[in-house]
């Protein structure tokens, strides 16, 4: 089933330049997609079309079959596609974690018991239930972003969009957040769309879409996308070191560190041990 349908979408902020050019894209329910591209490629602008923060200048975006221009169904669209942003400090409304998580559910006008249930479940889903009464101001970057994920989960979305949510985190925080969203994707069947410029994160997705100059230039499995080392480099992006090493040694089908170890082991055939 398709959760997201992007049809011939073009977008520009001003007359002068087009940010998105005729984008066509569908996202399957339960999938984990990474959208990568350098700064200014249009990847964040595209992401903001997925929950009607931005509306296409031409073409259309459908969330669960609902046209994002349908203002009457805005709540349905936005609660179906939850979004987590880049700067953890700038997206928090409340001073206490559970109030932050409750915010969306309160906006939806839910019953108190239902809000409570969703808050507890969302916090548990991101492993932050012990921090319910703590202030996010005193948390690490990774923890803040997990609270932000829980805050989106309170809408019980089918799809979670992370708009460069790892960009301001340190390696530990990034690993924490990646682990959380992978678990949500696997165990709670939440569709994940991860906007990033970190290749090691993109590698963990089922599908990688590369955007450059407002257009989709590559779309495929991480293995297929990163095999074309020259192309990725020419777009100003990095290639995971395992893939780069394999490429230099003329090995194929290598994406992860373990695969690289196996391929090199095979290549050397025990020599030099």
């Amino acid at each position: 089933m398709k959760i997201l349908n992007v049809e011939n979408v073009s977008f520009s902020y001003s007359e002068k330049e087009t940010v998105l050019k005729d984008i066509n894209l569908t996202i399957e329910k339960g999938s984990f997609t990474a959208i990568i591209g350098c700064n200014g490629s249009g990847k964040s602008t595209l992401a903001k079309h997925f929950n009607a923060i931005l509306l296409p200048k031409s073409g259309a975006v459908y969330v669960k079959g609902i046209d994002t221009r349908d203002e009457k169904r805005l709540f349905e669209i936005r609660s179906a596609a939850g979004m987590v942003f880049q700067n953890p400090d700038n997206q928090m409304v409340a001073a206490i974690a559970e109030d932050e998580v409750a915010f969306a559910a309160e906006n939806l006008g839910l019953e108190r018991n239902e809000i409570r249930r969703r808050v507890d479940e969302s916090l548990r889903a991101v492993g932050m239930e012990e921090y319910a009464l703590e202030s996010p101001a005193h948390m690490s970057g990774g923890q803040k972003q997990r609270i932000a994920v829980a805050a989106a989960l309170a809408m019980e979305p089918e799809c979670l969009i992370l708009d460069e949510s790892t960009a301001m985190l340190d390696p530990q925080g990034r690993a924490e957040l990646m682990q959380t969203i992978k678990k949500l994707n696997r165990e709670n069947n939440i569709t994940v769309i991860l906007i990033t410029h970190y290749m090691d994160e993109a590698v963990q997705a089922d599908r990688v879409i590369v955007i450059d100059g407002g257009e989709i230039v590559t779309d495929g499995t991480p293995r297929a996308v990163f095999e074309d080392v020259e192309k990725i480099r020419s777009l100003g992006l990095d290639v995971p070191q395992a893939a780069e090493l394999a490429h230099e040694l003329g090995l194929t089908g290598v994406l992860t560190a373990d695969e690289c170890v196996n391929a090199v082991d095979k290549l050397l055939g025990g020599a030099g041990r």
Partner: peptide
Amino acid sequence: TAMDARCFI
């Protein structure tokens, strides 16, 4: 934007 995304009107 973050408030919009969480259905605040």
